[in-house]
Design a protein around this nucleic acid. Structure first.
Lengths: 196, 196
DNA sequence: CTTTTGTACTAACATTTGTTAGCGTAAATT
DNA sequence: AATTTACGCTAACAAATGTTAGTACAAAAG
């Protein structure tokens, strides 16, 4: 069949991960088989194992790649001297952007993380919990400073994160508005829903 | 092992469907095996087939049970002579209530429908599309009547439906606020985000 | 009590799954 | 040019999957 084609300076492993994210998104982690993955990569199933350790390694690479990006952005935002609403807005814009431009990866991370194996599963859940707590803390701070309505911050975070994961439907839809417009609409509704 | 125990006047098939919804929610449709299902039902795997035709029959029973309830509620709401915002609020409250009280079923319908087989898959998608279109039409009507902000109605629907499917996290969370409070918070944020 | 129906069992099936072993060759390094 | 490394192949594996056939027996109907 010939070698796996790489482009720019990405490794063969990177190519496999990318294709895996697409496949896992489309079929779901459990339903996607290594033989299917091999086919889209253009190689026999066994050959994949020259580059990766296991199917589940693919999943945890995808999931932590996303999770780490999110955590990093949270670090950055927390350090800024801006209002709570501005922080929320910046976090949301980052999340929306990720969903629009790195769709497959983010989608897989969101929906398939439960198939992670230990110890990755526990690490992932902890990181996720931490992220949400920090997000909720920003909102509570905003409530204290009377920028934000008096609401349950945990519920607010839950709504926002899941609203964003709904961009999945936007990707599927035929008559899409463009990405920037989508972002503005989401910010209007979500931030508008918080503002006092 | 003895027979499947039923209660109230539910059939043995109903018991299997209920347990299937719980299992599919927890493991995902593909990852859940008929042998696992049999175990939680308290029977051997082969015995299930005295009551159901196939694994995928279970999925489509679950999915259409939910989808039909939603469609029915939409019929009801559309017929009412209320403002658009009141209609949106009623639909949201119904969806939230469903997520809080029929969690497993709704969750499975939301996340696992893609494993439906034809012709159920196409029917389901059509029904879903129809529901969203009707929801969006209510919002557009509200925009026309200046009750609602000028936003993309499709995006608004997408946000709301997915925000609600996020109640999944609420179920998982340890220190839950109660269901009614959750509902009020969600309405505040979501309806507040639309209101002009 | 007898017959019929419903339902559970065991055993087995054909597929599909992730993964490993061993081999050959093209690419990279010396 | 010679050697080593990287990487693809075929073949095979054990385990798990959904499902069917055939049998036995308890419950329901007569």
């Amino acid at each position: 069949m010939g070698r796996i084609k790489t482009e720019n300076n990405s490794s063969r492993k990177d190519v496999i991960i990318k294709k895996a994210a697409e496949l896992f998104k489309e079929k779901g982690f459990k339903a996607a088989s290594m033989r299917e993955l091999a086919e889209v990569v253009g190689v026999e199933a066994a050959s994949l194992y020259n580059h990766i350790r296991s199917k589940s390694e693919l999943l945890h690479l995808i999931c932590f790649n996303v999770a780490n990006r999110y955590t990093l952005m949270m670090d950055e935002v927390e350090a800024e001297k801006t209002t709570s609403l501005q922080k929320v807005e910046k976090l949301l814009r980052f999340l929306i952007g990720g969903m629009v431009h790195n769709f497959e990866e983010v989608y897989v991370c969101d929906r398939e993380w439960k198939y992670l194996t230990e110890p990755y599963l526990s690490n992932f859940q902890a990181q996720r919990r931490g992220y949400r707590k920090r997000f909720a803390a920003i909102i509570e701070d905003g409530i204290k400073k009377k920028e934000i309505k008096k609401i349950d911050s945990t519920t607010a975070v839950l709504i926002m994160l899941h609203a964003i994961s709904g961009i999945e439907s936007w990707h599927r839809s035929k008559q899409k508005i463009n990405g920037k417009e989508l972002e503005e609409n989401m910010i209007t509704i979500l931030v508008g829903g918080l503002r006092k």
